[in-house]
Design a protein around this nucleic acid. Sequence first.
DNA 1: GTCTATATTTGGATAGAC
DNA 2: GTCTATCCAAATATAGAC
Lengths: 219, 219
Amino acid sequence: MIETANRDRRAERREATKAEIVDAAWALARAEGLAAVSLRDIAKAVGMQAPSLYGYFGSKHEIYDAMFAMGAQQFVDAEPWDEMTGDALHDVRCIVHYVVRFCSEDIARYQLLFQRTIPGFEPSAASFAISEGNLARLGEQLARVGITDPRAIDLFTALSAGLANQQISNDPGGDRWIRLIDDAVAMYVQYMTGVGEDPQPTDRSTDQLTDQRTGGAPR
Amino acid sequence: MIETANRDRRAERREATKAEIVDAAWALARAEGLAAVSLRDIAKAVGMQAPSLYGYFGSKHEIYDAMFAMGAQQFVDAEPWDEMTGDALHDVRCIVHYVVRFCSEDIARYQLLFQRTIPGFEPSAASFAISEGNLARLGEQLARVGITDPRAIDLFTALSAGLANQQISNDPGGDRWIRLIDDAVAMYVQYMTGVGEDPQPTDRSTDQLTDQRTGGAPR
DNA sequence: GTCTATATTTGGATAGAC
DNA sequence: GTCTATCCAAATATAGAC
């Protein structure tokens, strides 16, 4: 019994140290860029020498994999699905806001999770499963507001990815494309659900994009 | 006179060699990834030793810069603007097709031109000017079909970038998002120009995405 | 578990002969 | 202009002492 207790304590300590290492790696990635992360710097950040890291991870790629899993898990944890109302416009808007903010608030995380920027790195099956779960739950939510066609879902991901990508690439730290989300979602939902219900819905929605803020200089 | 002629020939030869080096660098980037390009490999590809490259470029970043300029110039050269008709739907569709194909047919080029994947590299003013010219001409074309609002243009770039990004990241070599372009453009143009002109335009367009190809399994 | 020491590889870049 | 030789730095990873 005492032995088991000791083992548990040791295992807990070990997991805590691993988490500390991954946290340090993320901090470095955010500060210096994902590709600039080195074992030396990680070790220095946690008060170790580089070789000591091999007591916790078998290779640098294993650290990347743990980072990947952590990032994907963060997406799960902050999911906005208790805010869903069943109204398509509101719910889709809410989801896209969440996705774009999640991507643009941490570019390094975005690159590791959604781009292929680390040469030779691929997430393990376990880590990748977290990501696939995210996509599946997203599909469920879209289905709940009546969007079930695979092509419609692909268009949704393209729209979200495009807004996030432009925000990150062309206005990092700003909100130039974030401010477009509501209009983009209006366009999408309108196209998906049909606008025939409202006699003249185009007047208002078109104005939002073509007449409003015409004088506003984009960054 | 003879001296000038000799100088010209030498200059031409020099430019030809520089072009050869940049071509080799691009070939390596496409084969091994942008970050995996090394001076040694470039030199080997053109039949030189690594230090000889410094007779043509002052640093590796200068080679990246020349690659950037070449990629941006390729975008100019293949521009589809002699195919413009003045019809918004047709022209926008044509432009998006061009952009998405340009991006997805060469991922290394896409990464260098549109993502920030090389740590510490920024294009020179001259190279960047080519890119800005591209964006400006794109804006002119959109204006010609009545899309002038900065926000509308931003939404256009987001939509194009999103389709290209998803195509590259999730279906490289395929056409899963390329096949969505026509629908995406219909959605966009419909939202921009207003659908009030057509009594019931939503029936057809909605069907395209929600009912058509429902059984088609996405990759 | 952590360290020091080191192997190994691979880069970019420079010096100087030819 | 191109070469050989070399420098220097940085990175991953391993061996073995403590």
